[in-house]
Simulated assay, not measured.
Amino acid sequence: MQADGLWSIGELAERAQVTVKTVRFYSDRGLLPEAGRSGGGHRRYGPEALDRIRVIRSLRALDLAVPEVERALDRDEALEHVLAGRLREVEEELAGLRWREASLRLLAQSPPEERAERLLLLGAVGLPPGTDAVVRFWRRVLPVRLPPRLASRVLDAVVPPLPADPGPEQVLAFARLHALVRDPRLDRVPALRPGPPLPGETYRPTVLYEGLEEAYGLAGAETRGGRPPEGGGALDCFVTAYATALGTRDSPDFRRRLVELLAREDGPVMSRYWKLALPLFRSDEPALGQLHYGLVLALRADSAATA
């Protein structure tokens, strides 16, 4: 240290336990405050430069790139933004590792005769996986005239959230679900092409889906209360949603026709979809598919009783 209490670039590097090249690099990028210059024009540094190097090293140890460090040192708000962004990246990396671990466990535990098929299924799914293909599947199924906010709520209810720490069975379920929604043969399934539920009748999709949203809410409350959906309450709301959307009224005859309609809508594709999707939903909260099929069963029982 010179008489003025300042350090040369070599002295600062020694105190910070970094190379002179590192100090010069940070200085050239404007990250280190200079306290002055020597008579020969050499940079001089004070204790604040040593503190800054220690902060930079801490941020770099968190795997922040130099441009991110520059933004973080600009002001406190920038530091919060940079740290939040890096935290999201780390969470995504961890999720990818957990899905990769579960995928490896799945393959290791699979019978040899099933391993090749499962390997191909997993190869079609990214890590961490995304639900874009599932969303596209539902956007094709849902009526195009649904208001955006309503369509968004429907998608939130039918697209399974991906667990951050999946088990092998959940990885397999999602891989099969992903293959199902991307199957090109779905283009030939009439029930998956939007259209009026009953030919020749008025169909107001917004009225239907808003009514179904209310019916599923009631059914969920009944299910959480330990009561399966049955006559009255959620079932009446469920039937009324279809009747109102089709410009008619609830009646025994309409309920019998609705049983036939739902049998066409809830074909093998949708049944398989919900079978594969259910393991991905929270186990302590009934999924929409469970609520829907519970109401369908209640409707069938009600129609059979009044036949």
Rank of each mutant, 00 (worst) to 15 (best):
Glu11Met: 08
Leu12Arg: 03
Ala13Tyr: 04
Ala13Ser: 09
Val18Glu: 07
Thr22Cys: 02
Val23Lys: 05
Asp28Val: 03
Arg29Trp: 03
Pro33Gln: 12
Glu34Asn: 08
Gly36Asp: 09
Ser38Thr: 14
Ser38His: 03
His42Gly: 09
Tyr45Phe: 13
Tyr45Asp: 10
Gly46Gln: 04
Pro47Thr: 13
Asp51Ile: 14
Ile53Glu: 12
Ile53Thr: 10
Arg57Ser: 14
Arg60Asn: 05
Arg60Asp: 07
Leu62Phe: 03
Leu62Met: 12
Val69Lys: 03
Glu70Ser: 10
Leu73Asn: 02
Asp74Asn: 09
Asp76Gly: 03
Ala78Tyr: 04
Leu83Ser: 09
Arg86Cys: 10
Leu87His: 13
Arg88Gly: 12
Glu89Gln: 11
Glu92Tyr: 00
Ala95Ile: 02
Arg98Glu: 14
Glu101Thr: 13
Ala108Val: 04
Ser110His: 01
Ser110Tyr: 00
Pro111Phe: 01
Glu114Val: 00
Ala116Phe: 03
Glu117Val: 02
Glu117Asn: 00
Leu120Glu: 12
Leu121Arg: 04
Ala124Ser: 15
Gly126Lys: 06
Gly130Asn: 06
Thr131Leu: 11
Thr131Phe: 07
Asp132Lys: 11
Asp132Gln: 14
Arg136Gln: 12
Arg136Cys: 03
Trp138Tyr: 06
Arg139Asn: 13
Val141Ser: 08
Pro148Val: 10
Pro148Asp: 14
Leu150Asp: 11
Arg153Asn: 10
Leu155Ser: 05
Pro168Cys: 07
Glu169Arg: 13
Ala173Arg: 12
Ala173Lys: 12
His178Tyr: 13
Asp183Gly: 05
Arg185Lys: 10
Arg185Gly: 14
Asp187His: 07
Asp187Cys: 00
Arg188Cys: 05
Arg188Asp: 15
Arg193Cys: 01
Pro194Tyr: 09
Pro196Tyr: 05
Pro197Ile: 01
Pro197Ala: 05
Pro199Cys: 03
Gly200Gln: 08
Glu201Gly: 07
Arg204Ser: 06
Tyr209Trp: 15
Leu212Gln: 03
Glu214Lys: 05
Glu214Asp: 04
Glu214Arg: 11
Ala215Arg: 00
Tyr216Leu: 08
Tyr216Phe: 12
Tyr216Gln: 01
Tyr216Asn: 00
Gly217Ile: 00
Ala221Met: 12
Thr223Tyr: 13
Arg224Val: 07
Gly226Glu: 12
Gly231Met: 08
Gly233Trp: 03
Asp236Ile: 01
Phe238Pro: 06
Tyr242Glu: 10
Ala245Phe: 08
Leu246Phe: 06
Gly247Met: 10
Asp250Ala: 13
Asp253Thr: 14
Phe254Lys: 07
Arg257Pro: 06
Leu258His: 07
Val259Asn: 05
Glu265Ile: 12
Asp266Ile: 08
Val269Ile: 10
Arg272Leu: 15
Arg272Phe: 00
Arg272Pro: 02
Lys275Ala: 14
Leu276His: 01
Ala277Trp: 00
Pro279Lys: 04
Leu280Met: 01
Phe281Glu: 05
Asp284Phe: 04
Glu285Thr: 09
Glu285Ser: 09
Gln290Cys: 06
Leu291Asp: 07
His292Phe: 02
Gly294Trp: 00
Ala304Ile: 04
